[in-house]
Design a protein around this nucleic acid. Structure first.
Length: 295
DNA sequence: AATGAGCGA
């Protein structure tokens, strides 16, 4: 096999391409007609097709004509306005586009830990991140601004406590990572938050491994309901920690049910009460507490 | 009618 290959002259596709181009001079030149009064433009050109035959290609296009009839009266009127503003000094045709020189400062969220110096400097890196990127970060999962941004975010489980938790600042100072986290909204582990004492007496078994709690099952979803739709539907009730739509691996289509997890149980309960029996996409939703996932 | 991924150290 190697011998056979060696006997063949080497052919590179790049050269083939060149050959094809070389023959183009044999073809009649491209002709362009119009555009005529109707804005119709015609291009006639010749090419070699894959079999090497000469083919004629005629392309007819109509230049988009802005019919005045389709413009609002105001728009038509604006066309007769004299130039004003910066355009006064422009020697350009009747219609022109100005380039804005206005400076727009964009705040860009930085990946946590990507700049150690800045994060360290303030002591509490999480709080700092929250400040720096708060404007633009919107979490895909919960839709809230500021504390995390995707379901894969390593900080997603450190989400800022929701309003109900915020009402009761912790009595115990949280041992913040930086050591100096004495701000009001410094991160407080769930076990230390308001009401922790009662729960802790039970042995602190409330440890949540994941945001598996307050899971709501939604069935009778239409086939094209996606997670984003579910989120939109449930978000008004409170902080949603996860949405999931079951997908059939074979068909890649929705299995018609999904789950929504809430940070706060009361929010989940309200969602169930409001949304169970709710008409959505021609179907009646069933919304109820989900059984714990099978192991 | 119906109860969910991935997961590597």
């Amino acid at each position: 096999m190697a011998v056979e290959a060696a006997n063949q002259p080497k052919i590179r596709w790049g050269e083939l391409e060149d050959d094809a181009e070389d023959l183009d001079f044999l073809l009649p030149p491209k002709q362009i007609f119009g555009p005529d009064s109707n804005g119709v433009k015609k291009i006639v050109e010749y090419k070699f097709n894959e079999e090497g035959n000469k083919v004629k290609i005629t392309t007819t296009t109509r230049i988009r004509k802005l019919a005045n009839a389709r413009l609002s009266k105001r728009a038509v009127e604006r066309r007769s306005w004299p130039k004003f503003g910066d355009a006064v000094h422009e020697e350009v045709g009747a219609r022109l586009t100005m380039v804005s020189t206005e400076e727009i400062i964009l705040e860009r969220p930085r990946a946590p830990g990507s700049n150690k110096d800045e994060a360290k400097a303030s002591g509490d890196s999480l709080a700092q991140i929250g400040k720096a990127g708060a404007v633009l970060m919107v979490c895909r999962t919960c839709g809230k601004k500021g504390d995390h941004w995707t379901s894969k975010c390593p900080f997603k489980d450190l989400a800022q406590p929701s309003e109900t938790f915020m009402d009761k600042p912790p009595s115990t100072e949280a041992p913040a990572a930086g050591g100096a986290g004495s701000q009001k909204n410094a991160y407080v582990p769930p076990s230390m938050r308001g009401g922790a004492a009662e729960r802790a007496s039970g042995g602190g078994t409330e440890m949540r491994r994941r945001n598996e709690e307050n899971s709501v099952r939604v069935t009778n979803l239409s086939e094209d309901t996606r997670e984003a739709d579910l989120l939109e539907l449930f978000r008004p009730f409170g902080h949603v920690s996860r949405v999931y739509v079951a997908i059939d691996q074979k068909t890649a289509m929705s299995r018609g049910f999904g789950f929504v997890n809430f940070v706060n149980r009361e929010d989940a309960e309200r969602a169930i009460n409001k949304l169970n029996g709710y008409g959505y996409d021609n179907l009646i939703l069933r919304v109820e507490w989900a059984a714990p996932r099978a192991t």
